[in-house]
Amino acid sequence: MIGFTLRRLVLLLPVFLVVSLVVFFIIHLVPGDPIDNLLRAGSTPEQRLQIAAKYGLDRSLIEQYVTWMGRLLTGDLGTSIIQGRPVSALIARNLPYSLELGVAALLFSTLTGIAAGVIAASYQGTRVDDTITGFILLGSTVPSFWLGLMLILVFAVWLGWVPVSGARGWSSLILPVIAAGLGGIALVARVTRIAMIETSRQDFVMLLHAKGLPPFIIQLRHVLRHAMVPVVTILSLRIGWVLGGAVTIEYVFARPGLGSLLIRALNQRDYPLVQGCLLMLAMAVIIGALIGDIVQAAMDPRQREARA
């Protein structure tokens, strides 16, 4: 297991290099220029040149990449062109909000999704299953932007239970977590339901029934455990989403976060900030996948051997 983990960690190095290349060059391929977003009526052409020189934008892309990578290796993500603050400080300021919302939404969607999937599988073919499946379908199709506004209208405006927006206190987290988590519930519930149904049909489950074990024990102790393998895969891929996937939710609920930071930086072509955010999100996805692999390998030795 240790060897497997080490091998996976070593593989991260070339992946990081490729990611850094893609992250750097992709934003420079998009039309636009951050300096246009800095200048106001009255600014002189000389000021444009000064800004370009200050941030190294007058140099070739290769030179800019080498400089960026050099700084990156020392832990310096550069300075935001538009905001004039270190990128790492801006990320650090927004990260806690993203983690708070992302982790809460992931927990909410995972627990609720697994519960809904288990119930649907247990009541397969009944009205309960149909109702849950219906909700799953609805959850995967309702736009989170619209859902957020509807939740605000019902729970904040009509009922007055929670604040409309903001990031002050736990009560302001409730609606964003529900809005961000609903899509995840649908996904986790669907995967859990299918995995539970498929596992229930396997020979070892028939054997357990034949041995006279109570169905409730079989479902929870044996079927659910096996059904969790695809669920873990899905969850590991959602770790990147935890950090940057709630852009629309952050927008609707006026919450700070990495998603909003990235979108604003993209709109302003703030290269260092976009690069810093994208790199951070890409690494989160990669590390998420790594954790998923390790957990899967721990749960299923066959996979560990297959990937060795």
Binding site: W161, V162, V177, G181
Partner: peptide
């Protein structure tokens, strides 16, 4: 537990 709805925020 996930919903945890409760009143009073200001």
């Amino acid at each position: 537990a996930g919903l945890g709805l409760a009143g009073g925020y200001s």
